[in-house]
Amino acid sequence: MIATALRIVAVTATLGIGIAAASAQSAEPARPQLKTHVTVNANIVRIGDLIDNAGIVADVAIFRAPDLGTTGTVPVAAVVEAVRPHALVGFDTGGATEITVTRAAREIPISEIERSLAEAVSSRFNAGPAADITVTFDRDPRAIQVDPSSRGDIAIARLSYDARSSRFDATLEIPTGATQRGLLRLSGRAYATAEVVMVSHSVDRGAVLRAADLQVERRPRAEVGRDAIVGIERAIGMAARSVIRPGQPLRSADLTRPEIVQRGQMVTLVFEAPGLTLTLRGKATEAGAEGDTVTVLNEQSKRSVQGVVVGPGHVVVSTTVPRFAANLPAAAGTGP
Rank of each mutant, 00 (worst) to 15 (best):
D138L: 00
L183F: 06
S166E: 07
T39K: 13
S187I: 10
E114Q: 12
P322Q: 08
S160A: 08
I156S: 07
A20N: 10
T171V: 07
S160F: 04
A130E: 15
S187T: 15
I19M: 00
A253H: 05
L183N: 15
R303K: 12
V224S: 03
L159R: 06
Q25A: 06
R124E: 14
T73E: 08
A96Y: 10
V135L: 00
G90Q: 12
R151N: 15
A27L: 03
V203C: 02
S187P: 12
A118Q: 10
A127Y: 14
A207W: 15
A273P: 06
A190Y: 09
Q145W: 09
R185C: 03
E259P: 03
S122V: 06
R158S: 11
L50H: 14
G182V: 09
R323I: 15
D92E: 14
R164F: 02
L50S: 07
A87S: 14
T100A: 08
A77F: 06
R251T: 09
G128L: 02
A77R: 14
L172T: 10
D162C: 00
S160N: 11
A120K: 14
G152P: 12
R257W: 06
S252E: 15
G311L: 00
G311S: 12
V199Q: 05
R84M: 01
G231Y: 09
V199C: 02
V261T: 13
V224W: 04
I156Y: 10
S301K: 05
S187H: 13
S301A: 04
T70I: 02
V74K: 11
I232P: 02
T4Y: 10
R241M: 00
V135C: 01
T93R: 05
S252V: 04
P329S: 11
S116C: 02
A21D: 10
I2A: 00
S149N: 12
R189Y: 09
G55F: 08
A78V: 08
V296L: 00
Q248C: 01
D92T: 13
R151S: 09
A54V: 08
F91N: 14
V203P: 11
I229W: 06
T39P: 10
T100F: 03
K302S: 09
I113D: 01
A105E: 10
G188K: 07
D213Q: 10
I56K: 14
T320C: 01
R185I: 12
V317S: 04
V83E: 05
I8N: 02
S202F: 06
V216A: 02
A170H: 12
G275A: 03
R7I: 15
V89I: 11
T71A: 07
E195L: 00
I99P: 10
L297N: 15
A228K: 02
L280P: 03
V308S: 00
L159T: 11
T268Q: 04
S252H: 14
D227G: 05
P109Y: 04
V146D: 03
P75T: 04
A235T: 13
G313R: 15
A78N: 15
V230A: 04
L117S: 04
H86G: 02
L88A: 01
R46A: 11
R158M: 00
A13L: 10
A20E: 08
D138P: 13
G18W: 11
V315A: 01
T134F: 01
N126D: 12
L184G: 09
P274D: 05
R167M: 00
F324K: 05
G335C: 07
R115E: 09
I56H: 14
G247Y: 08
G307D: 07
